[in-house]
Design a protein around this nucleic acid. Structure first.
Length: 698
RNA sequence: GGGCGCUUAGCUCAGUUGGUUCAGAGCGUCUCGUUUACACCGAGAAGGUCAGAGGUUCGAGUCCUCUAGCGCCCACCA
C-alpha cells in the first residue's frame, strides 16, 4: 500500500468487478427496494447537478446491504424540444437547416446523436461509481416504451381526457412549435406603454387606449371599458375607428377592465392576447390573426403585411405620431413570456392542438389533477422536504389543460391518423390505405411522465419487473422539475396503473459554487464532476455533494470542499494501511478488552444507530458527518494513537472497527471502501457491496 | 398579485419531537510539532448578544407575531 491513496489505481477495477459479478442486479429477496434514475437528456454531457444521483446510490447501496432485492434502473431521455434545438444549432454551424435534410433524415441523424451522447453519459455515471443495473437500461424512444406511451394516449382519448381543440396557445416563433404554459418563462422587461387615440365615428372625440403592443392594434375588434367607469359611460355602444386601417370597432363594457390602469380603456385583440381572447369569446368578437406563425404580419394586416412584427410596431408608431394620434409614451415594466429553451419572445396565437383535460373526470371517473392531489394529501405519496407539498397543492389546484402536441420532428409522433373527416387513434397505424398520421409529436414530458412504469415493462408480456418493483420506493430528483416531471408522473401513473408511481419523493436542490452562485459554463464557475473525480477521486466528489446539504436546499460546493473530502479518503486509506500493513508480528486476537476498547466499541454502536436512523430518515448529510467525525476523530486521532502502546492487543478491535466503519461508509464512498475491505485479513463475502449492513446485535 | 424560503464563527453551512453533553463542522487564521499510518498529518488557540423587536414557556437558534435585508417559485392586468 502506498503512503498516498491513488484512486486511479482502483476505481475502474472495482466497478468492472461489481458489474461482472452481477452485483447491480436485484437478488431474489421478497423485500423490494426500487428507484428509477431520472433519465438525463441525451443531448450533452453530464454536469455537476447529475452527480446528485449520489443520493440515490446511497439509498440503493444501503438497501442492498440490508439484503433487500434492490433495483436502480438507468435510462436516458430523448428530450424532445431541447434536443431538437441543440441538434439544429449543430446543423446551423454546418450551414444547414433541418428542412434541408427532411424529416426522416433529420430524425435519423438526431437519433444517432442521442445514442452517442447517451453512451458517453453512461460512462460518466459509471465513473461516479453508481450501482445501476445496466442490463435493464431504457431509452424513451425504445419501441416497447413508445408502445406504452401510445396506448396511454389512446386510453386518455377514449376516456375523453385527450381532445383536439382550437385554443389560444403559446407559440415559439424560433422553435416553430406550441409550448405548454410551463415551458413559458416570464421575464420582467422594461418597455414602453403607448397611449393611442382612437377616433370615434361621427364625432370629434377620441377614446384613448394604452397598450404595450401597438402592432396588434391591426387585429383589434373592440375597445373595452369597465361598465362602472363614469368617464366612459357615454362611449359604450358607440363605434370607434381603428386608425391606419379604418376598421370600425365597437366600444364595449366588461368587468375585466381595470379603470385605474392606463386610461381605463383597453384595445381588444382576441387573436393575440389571452385576456382579449376570453373577452372576445364573451362578446362574440371576430378573431383577426395579424401576426403569423413566422412572427411576420399576415395578409390581414393591410399595408403592413409581410413585415416583421417589431418592424411593423416601429412603423405603426411613427405613422400614428405623424397623424397626431399618439397621445404619449410611458416607460413600463412588463412581464413577457419567453421560450424556456431558446429565450425567444413567445407569441400568443390561436391554433388547433391536442390537449389533456386535467381537471374534469373522464368517462372512467378518473380525474387527473384531483387524483394526483389526493394521493399526496392522503399521504400515499410523501414529499421531502414537506414544504414542497404545499407548493405542489398550489400548482395542482390551479392547473389548466395541458397542451401536448408539438410541431417538432424529434419525439413520439402523435398516434392519430386522418382520412378525410375520419380520425383514427391507435397504437398502430390503421391497416387500410389513405390514412395520414398527425404530423406533430408529443410533449417530451408526456412520455417521461410515464417513466416509472414504462421502464418496468407495464403492459408488456414480460412485466415481472413491474409486478415486483412498482410502485417504486423513492423518486429522487431536483425540485426544479417538480411540476414538469414529478407532478406529471403522479397524474399519469395513477391514471394508467391505478397506483401512485412512488411512495416517497425526495427533492434535492441546485448545486451552486461556494459563493452561492448558480454554476454555468459561461460564468466559468462550473465544476465538471468527471474532471473533479479524475483529480480527487469519485468518492471525494460524492462525499462533497452529500456533506452539509439538506433536502430541498441548494448545495454549495467548491474545489476546497472536494479537496477536504479527498483528504478524508486519504485518512481512511492510512488507517487501513496502519491496521493491515503495519500489523505486528505478535497479535493476540483473544486478548481481553480494556476500557479504551470498550469505549470505542460502544461509540461505534451509537454511530451505527445514528447513521442507520439518519439514512432511513433521508438525512444523508447527517449520516455522512457522523461517520466522518467518528472515523477521523474518535477512531484515528484518539483510539489509534492510544493503541500504539499495546499494538498486539488492540489488533482485534482495530480490525473490527475498521471493517464495520468501511461497511457504514460504503454507500457514500463505495470505491475506496471496497479497495480497503478487500485487503482485510479477516472478512467474509466476495464484496463489501453485498456485505450486510452493520447492526448493533454484534 | 399570490406562495415559499433564507439571515448561526472571516467564508460555506449543519443544528426535525424547546432542556445539563447546542452554541457546532469543514475551510481559513494563529501557535507548536519533521513521534516509523497519514504534512492530503498531529496537538492546541482565537473567533458568534444564533438578523432585529416583542411574545409563549420553569426554560427558545429551536414555537408564535411583527420589522429589515436577500433569494426563489407561481400568476392572462392592457
Amino acid at each position: 500500500m502506498d503512503k498516498i491513496y491513488n484512486h486511479k489505481d482502483v476505481e475502474e477495477k472495482w466497478y468492472s468487478f461489481w458489474e461482472e459479478n452481477g452485483f447491480f442486479k436485484p437478488n431474489d429477496s421478497t423485500k423490494h427496494f426500487s428507484i428509477i434514475l431520472p433519465p438525463p437528456n441525451a443531448n450533452g454531457r453530464l454536469h455537476i447537478g447529475h452527480a446528485m444521483y449520489v443520493i440515490e446510490d446511497i439509498m440503493v447501496r444501503y438497501h442492498r446491504m440490508l439484503g433487500e432485492s434492490t433495483l436502480w434502473l438507468p435510462g436516458a431521455d430523448h428530450a424532445g424540444i431541447l434536443t431538437q434545438v441543440v441538434y439544429e444549432k449543430q446543423l446551423e454551424k454546418e450551414g444547414k437547416r433541418r428542412e434541408d435534410l427532411g424529416r426522416e433524415e433529420f430524425y435519423k441523424q438526431t437519433y444517432s446523436f442521442t445514442q452517442k451522447n447517451k453512451n458517453e453519459m453512461y460512462d460518466q455515471l459509471k465513473a461516479m461509481g453508481f450501482s445501476l443495473d445496466w442490463s435493464r437500461e431504457k431509452f424513451t424512444l425504445d419501441p416497447k416504451i413508445s408502445e406504452t406511451i401510445y396506448s396511454t394516449f389512446k386510453k386518455l382519448y377514449d376516456d375523453g381526457l385527450i381532445y383536439r381543440g382550437t385554443r389560444m396557445i403559446n407559440w415559439c416563433p424560433r422553435c416553430s412549435t406550441v409550448l405548454s404554459d410551463l415551458e413559458v418563462i416570464h421575464k420582467e422587461k422594461e418597455g414602453n406603454i403607448w397611449y393611442i387615440k382612437y377616433p370615434l365615428k361621427n364625432s370629434a372625440a377620441f377614446i384613448t387606449i394604452a397598450t404595450t403592443r401597438p402592432e396588434t392594434m391591426l387585429g383589434d375588434t373592440a375597445v373595452a371599458v369597465n361598465p362602472d367607469d363614469k368617464r366612459y359611460k357615454d362611449f359604450v355602444g358607440k363605434t370607434a375607428t381603428l386608425p391606419l386601417i379604418a376598421r370600425e370597432i365597437p366600444v364595449i363594457s366588461d368587468t375585466y377592465v381595470d379603470p385605474k390602469f392606463g386610461t381605463g380603456a383597453v384595445k381588444i385583440t382576441p387573436a393575440h392576447d389571452p385576456n382579449d381572447y376570453e373577452i372576445g369569446e364573451r362578446h362574440k368578437l371576430e378573431q383577426i390573426q395579424v401576426i403569423g406563425f413566422d412572427d411576420k404580419m399576415t395578409d390581414k394586416s393591410a399595408q403592413y403585411s409581410g413585415l416583421d412584427k417589431y418592424v411593423a410596431r416601429k412603423k405603426i408608431i411613427e405613422e400614428l405620431e405623424s397623424l397626431g394620434l399618439l397621445d404619449k409614451i410611458e416607460r413600463h415594466v412588463t412581464n413577457i413570456g419567453t421560450c424556456e429553451r431558446c429565450s425567444t419572445v413567445v407569441e400568443p396565437l390561436i391554433s388547433k392542438q391536442w390537449f389533456v383535460a386535467v381537471n374534469k373526470p373522464g368517462t372512467s371517473g378518473k380525474n387527473l389533477a384531483q387524483d394526483a392531489l389526493s394521493a399526496v394529501k392522503s399521504g400515499k405519496i410523501k414529499i421531502i422536504p414537506s414544504r414542497f407539498e404545499k407548493i405542489y397543492y398550489n400548482w395542482m389546484e390551479n392547473l389548466h389543460d395541458w397542451c401536448i402536441s408539438r410541431q417538432l420532428w424529434w419525439g413520439h409522433q402523435i398516434p392519430v391518423w386522418y382520412k378525410g373527416n375520419e380520425v383514427f387513434v391507435g397504437v398502430d397505424a390503421p391497416k387500410d390505405s389513405g390514412w395520414q398520421q398527425d404530423q406533430d409529436t408529443l410533449d417530451t414530458w408526456f412520455s417521461s411522465g410515464q417513466w416509472p412504469f414504462t421502464t418496468l415493462g407495464y403492459g408488456q408480456k414480460d412485466d415481472l419487473d413491474f409486478k415486483k418493483f412498482y410502485p417504486t420506493s423513492v423518486m429522487e430528483t431536483g425540485y426544479d422539475i417538480l411540476f414538469f416531471w414529478v407532478a406529471r408522473m403522479i397524474m399519469l401513473g395513477l391514471y394508467v396503473t391505478n397506483e401512485a408511481p412512488f411512495k416517497t419523493v425526495y427533492l434535492h436542490g441546485l448545486v451552486r459554487d461556494e459563493k452561492g452562485q448558480k454554476m454555468s459554463k459561461s460564468k466559468g464557475n462550473a465544476i465538471d464532476p468527471l474532471i473533479a473525480a479524475d483529480k480527487y477521486g469519485a468518492d471525494a466528489v460524492r462525499m462533497a455533494l452529500v456533506f452539509g446539504t439538506g433536502a430541498g436546499n441548494d448545495a454549495t460546493i467548491g474545489e476546497d470542499k472536494i479537496k477536504g473530502m479527498r483528504n478524508f479518503t486519504n485518512k481512511l486509506w492510512n488507517i487501513g494501511r496502519y491496521i493491515i500493513e503495519m500489523k505486528p508480528d505478535k497479535v493476540n486476537y483473544g486478548s481481553a478488552r480494556n476500557d479504551v476498547d470498550e469505549a470505542l466499541l460502544s461509540e461505534l454502536n451509537q454511530v451505527k444507530a445514528k447513521v442507520t436512523k439518519a439514512i432511513s430518515d433521508y438525512r444523508f448529510s447527517q449520516a455522512a458527518e457522523e461517520l466522518y467525525d467518528f472515523v477521523w476523530h474518535s477512531f484515528a486521532d484518539k483510539y489509534i494513537e492510544a493503541s500504539k502502546d499495546r499494538r498486539g492487543e488492540s489488533q482485534a478491535v482495530l480490525e473490527q472497527v475498521l471493517e464495520e466503519s468501511l461497511r457504514l461508509l460504503h454507500p457514500f464512498m463505495p470505491l475506496i471502501t471496497e479497495e480497503i475491505w478487500q485487503k482485510l485479513p479477516r472478512k467474509s463475502g466476495k464484496s463489501i457491496m453485498i456485505a450486510p449492513w452493520p447492526s448493533n446485535t454484534g
